[in-house]
């Protein structure tokens, strides 16, 4: 069951930004774009330098204690009672949905629960807290894009329509939906290396479905999926470009 997420009681003046480890190393521009979008709505964005990873890789591999210690470092890095905005449904899902369980019976159980309750997926926060879908002004050229919904974004964080609301708010953008949009791209963290052939078959189907939309870009809210899909598109020599939603929105609406 997806988490039941409700907006903060009042409009926050400060938000924390959790960039995620994958964004940190591979997609920092996407991470930065998310921060810019928030900042331009008049919010103070705080990026704790002590952050690293939500712990999901170890958690999903069955190494719970290692996951917990890394997660504890995040509890330490985000001490204030501010929303924590995450440009990834997967990492957000780990922190909101799984932290309470990960810390069950631990000395930090209460702290983890409070932390989990402050976690928001970026596009959800932009729509439901900042109402960005009603404020976007498209300054870009005409373009056709398709959307890839990440599994954890949809099924753990309950984020399904929010990103598409943002994309549809852009007057020069045509969104062509992929009928297999909700099907997993085959990344699955260690799955991609534990079951490389199944993963390869899944991503091959995914890029074929994306190709059929005729879109020049595939936009997503999760860099894990983008690394997988984008890597496969590139290797196959397909012209479709992968892009994180935050980067896409920033590019459309603001002079760089």
């Amino acid at each position: 069951m997806p988490a039941h997420v409700t907006p903060p009681a009042r409009m926050p003046k400060n938000v924390y930004y959790f960039g995620t480890c994958l964004v940190d190393l591979f997609f920092p521009d996407a991470g930065l774009a998310g921060m810019e979008l928030l900042k331009r709505q008049g919010i103070r964005v705080v990026f704790p330098q002590g952050q690293s990873c939500c712990g999901q890789p170890a958690f999903n591999s069955g190494h719970r204690s290692e996951a917990r210690e890394v997660a504890r470092a995040q509890l330490d890095a985000f001490p204030e009672d501010w929303p924590i905005v995450v440009p990834s449904g997967s990492c957000a899902g780990m922190m909101r949905v799984h932290y309470p369980d990960l810390f069950k019976g631990d000395r930090d159980e209460e702290r983890a629960k409070a932390f989990a309750g402050r976690v928001y997926e970026l596009s959800w926060f932009l729509v439901h807290v900042l109402g960005l879908d009603t404020k976007l002004v498209d300054k870009g050229e005409k373009v056709t894009v398709t959307w890839h919904g990440s599994c954890h974004s949809m099924r753990e964080m309950g984020v399904v329509d929010e990103p598409k609301r943002l994309i549809r708010a852009l007057s020069n953008v045509t969104l062509v939906e992929n009928p297999r949009e909700k099907e997993c791209c085959g990344f699955g963290g260690t799955f991609a290396v534990r079951q490389p052939e199944v993963s390869a078959a899944m991503v091959a189907d995914k890029i074929a479905a994306i190709g059929q939309t005729g879109a020049s870009r595939v936009v997503s809210g999760d860099c894990g999926c983008l690394m997988n899909i984008g890597g496969a598109l590139d290797k196959a020599g397909k012209p479709t470009r992968p892009q994180h939603l935050a980067e896409f929105l920033l590019e459309r609406c603001h002079d760089q």
Partner: peptide, 14 residues
Amino acid sequence: SVRSKPKFAAKTLH
């Protein structure tokens, strides 16, 4: 085998 090698960015988000 079916994807390009991910590229580390020159600078981290940090």
